[in-house]
């Protein structure tokens, strides 16, 4: 028993130290990639846990199939120590995993919330069931048009009910509502088009409340922005 307590204590000490250590670091220019990486780690982790549990279950189901009608189960009685070990060891293993997940989740979260200083500001207004983007020079647009290669922060509120701003391709979303200002930022890496959807139920045309995010080259964007609309 004592040896297990020592193992457990060590694991938890490492885990406790690891949380703040992993959570430090500089803000990123692009959190989308990191989302994908973290996602793969987490899915691997979850798959491993699932496989272990499922394999043991299958093994038991096959191995301990009833062979004769009057056969009884033959599970051993757990001593107090064994019973506690079956609680404490798994708990600390799970705890270690949870800390690992929390630390990494936390780190990425900081990146997702810290808007880089060089980000371009766009003001957004949601209303049933459309979006309006307004640029710093006063130009407004129905689609979100952005230049490639620089972070963009979209900030605003809603005129009526709660809506959701979602940029699935950039792995980011945040609700938008009356009475509060919320934001999200992302980093358009390549020229192209993406979908912007509303992800908070807002009534009849909730599923029609989508539009495009158009990433243009810097030159194209500047001329687009210059032509007053």
């Amino acid at each position: 028993m004592t040896i297990w307590f020592r193992v457990v204590a060590m694991v938890s000490a490492v885990a406790l130290w690891a949380v703040p250590a992993m959570a430090e670091g500089k803000p990123l220019q692009d959190h989308t990639e990191h989302w994908n990486t973290l996602w793969h780690h987490v899915i691997l982790d979850m798959t491993a846990i699932a496989v272990v549990f499922a394999a043991i279950t299958i093994w038991f189901l096959v191995k301990y199939k009833r062979t004769s009608e009057d056969q009884e189960g033959d599970s051993p009685s757990l001593s107090f120590g064994a019973s506690m070990a079956w609680a404490i060891i798994p708990i600390f293993l799970f705890l270690a995993d949870d800390f690992y997940l929390a630390a990494n989740g936390w780190k990425l979260w900081n990146d997702q919330r810290q808007v880089p200083e060089n980000a371009m500001e766009v003001k957004v207004t949601a209303s049933m069931w459309s979006w309006e983007y307004e640029y710093e020079n006063g130009k407004t647009s129905e689609d979100l048009v952005v230049p490639v290669g620089a972070p963009v922060v979209v900030r605003g509120s809603s005129d009526d009910v709660v809506h959701g701003m979602s940029l699935a391709d950039f792995r980011i979303k945040e609700d938008i509502m009356p009475g509060r200002i919320t934001y999200l930022w992302f980093y358009p890496k390549e020229v192209g088009e993406h979908v912007w959807t509303c992800t908070e139920y807002c009534g009849l045309n909730h599923s029609d409340m989508y539009n495009k995010v158009v990433v243009k080259s810097k030159a194209d964007f500047d001329s687009w922005l210059g032509t007053k609309g």
């Binding site: 979850m46 699932a50 989740g105 959701g164 980011i172 979303k173 908070e200």
Partner: peptide
């Protein structure tokens, strides 16, 4: 249960929520 775990992580859920 295990698919609840990525959802529990704020930074992953900012994409997964409401999907």
């Amino acid at each position: 249960g295990l698919t609840g775990i990525p959802l529990a992580m704020t930074s992953l859920t900012v994409h997964l929520a409401e999907t």
